[in-house]
Design a protein around this nucleic acid. Structure first.
Length: 478
RNA sequence: GGCCCCAUCGUCUAGCGGUUAGGACACUGGCCUCUCACGCCGGUAACGCGAGUUCGAUUCUCGCUGGGGUCACCA
């Protein structure tokens, strides 16, 4: 049987970084095994689902480059891929279970059960409330408001072998008659997921460890239907830095957050893949390398804590290395961030020339856009502190003289300019830094920038000289 | 509380019976240097505890402790 895996998000918000990791592992395994990666939208909870969320999830997946082979907007042989459009299938399946006595209608209301639960807790706070089976043998009355419950076995165990955790056995006595269908007729997660996974021929399910408790229920359902369950792999959880469940309360959690902060898709993915998986000591991978190297053998079981600094470092590595983010890609990716700074159409040639100087010092694309800013703004924005410290009446003389030297410079390339300026400074008994810092402020408006001679080279003769001249005026007019 | 799962530096991890327990982030000392970075060299820092098994346990078994997940008419 061929490999078919799925990502089944519920569109009730933006795409969560923890879900991205499960999806990434799923996607990687499909790509490396030549399997199919299916996207199915679990929108059975009408209260929480929204079209905007569907949009956000699809956008995030595409930005990350986790393209799906079947699903919304691409179609496939098992349409539709929205659970809200598959209700007939669920209804027919449930009716079958009821006919066979494997499920039954329950007329207890939520309020009644909540009251029972509270009464029990009041008597004994440590007590464990389970649905008492009130309606198990009650006469069927389909016209009355009801939910549908699964008739769980009370003897024996439900077992499965997890690709990560190994053999997991749960006593059926711990299982209660869980609800399959709500009063409003909508199926609940375990039911819908099981039916669809079977209907869509899913052969392998990878998901977060928080789903381990659902697995026995789903296996019970597979058995009730007489179906073969898929293989399962559960992933250890990525917790907040404090060890709590990761949420918007304690960390940046949505893909959009990371995108806004100027991380690249592979920066994000690379951090996530190394969380709970390893390939020896290696930590930095391209997408293709991951497809090639990923396997379940080195997925480990222990939960971990998210680390912002480590994340930033891994992401930075992708920005630094041309192998991982080629120059042209870097330029395309930084453009939106330049636009946000009011630079809508940066000159491509200049951008390409400038990026090598900033890529090893900008930890994010937001930083990169900041570092690149002065190349595309005339005049550059002056940092007050830098200007006060370095554009002084004394430095005006130096800058004037430097301007004259540069006006007569031959070849306008970084190395030649550096040689000329160094010789000139030495001749005048000046330390290079006494020339370089005022010049840097003159050219960039800042006290920190890429190397001065690279800046001159990228700016070009004319613009460099103009900025120097203007800085002299600023220095004198203090 | 029931059920399930987990346990190597602060964090992410390597290790699959014998290692000076390795790498990375973070922290830190230094080098490089026109600034800021990058890079390079060095330092601090871990096998939760107790029994077994074994000639020998970080590694295998059990117990304890600690941590997490889950127990909805959410997914």
């Amino acid at each position: 049987m061929s490999l078919r895996m799925r990502f089944a998000p519920s569109p009730s918000g933006s795409l969560h970084i923890g879900n991205v990791r499960s999806t990434l592992f799923t996607w990687l395994w499909c790509r490396s095994q030549g399997g199919k990666f299916i996207l199915r939208v679990e929108d059975t909870d009408q209260e929480r689902s929204s079209l905007d969320s569907v949009r956000a999830v699809l956008d995030a997946l595409r930005w990350l480059g986790l393209e799906w082979d079947e699903g919304p907007e691409v179609g496939g042989p098992y349409e539709p891929y929205f659970q809200s459009e598959r209700k007939t299938l669920y209804r027919e399946s449930v009716e079958q279970l009821i006919r066979e006595g494997k499920a039954y209608r329950c007329y207890c209301t939520k309020e009644e059960l909540d009251a029972q639960r509270e009464a029990l807790k009041a008597r004994n706070p440590k007590a464990n409330f389970v649905y008492p089976g009130t309606c198990r043998d009650r006469k069927d009355a389909p016209d009355l408001p009801h939910v549908v419950r699964f008739r769980s076995p009370s003897e024996g165990t439900t077992d499965f072998t997890d690709r990560v955790f190994g053999h997991i056995s749960t006593p059926n006595s711990a299982q209660q008659d869980f609800v399959l269908v709500r009063t409003d007729g909508y199926p609940l997660y375990n039911l819908a997921a099981t039916i669809d996974d079977h209907a869509m021929a899913i052969s392998f399910v990878a998901r977060g460890r928080d789903h381990i408790g659902n697995t026995p229920q789903q296996i019970l359902l597979y058995r009730a239907f007489g179906w073969q369950p898929p293989e399962f792999a559960h992933l250890p959880m990525m917790l907040s830095p404090k060890g709590e469940k990761l949420s918007k309360r304690n960390a940046a959690v949505s893909v959009q957050d990371y995108r806004d902060r100027g991380y690249t898709p592979m920066g994000v993915l690379n951090y996530l893949v190394r969380f709970g998986w390893s390939s020896g000591d290696r930590e930095i991978f391209s997408r293709d390398e991951l497809v090639q190297l990923f396997s379940w053998d080195h997925v480990h079981k222990a939960d971990g804590k998210f680390d912002e600094k480590k994340f930033a470092d891994v992401a930075f590595e992708h920005l630094k290395q041309d192998r991982l983010t080629p120059l042209a890609e870097y330029a395309e990716r930084v453009k939106p961030y330049l636009e946000k700074r009011g630079i809508p159409s940066a000159d491509d040639a200049r951008l390409l020339a400038a990026i090598p100087g900033v890529r090893e010092r900008a930890r994010t694309l937001v930083d990169a856009a900041h570092d690149l800013d002065f190349y595309f703004r005339e005049p550059p924005e002056f940092d007050d502190k830098a200007r006060q410290k370095f554009l002084t009446p004394e430095s005006a003389q130096t800058l004037t003289a430097l301007g004259e030297l540069l006006r007569g410079a031959g070849e306008w390339i970084a190395e030649a300019l550096e040689n000329a300026v160094k010789a000139w400074a030495e001749q005048r008994g000046l330390a290079l830094k006494d020339v370089a810092q005022p010049a840097r402020v003159a050219l960039t408006g800042r006290s920190a920038s890429p190397p001065l001679f690279e800046v001159l080279a990228v700016l070009g003769r004319e613009q460099s000289l103009a900025r120097l001249a203007r800085a002299v005026e600023l220095a004198q007019s203090r």
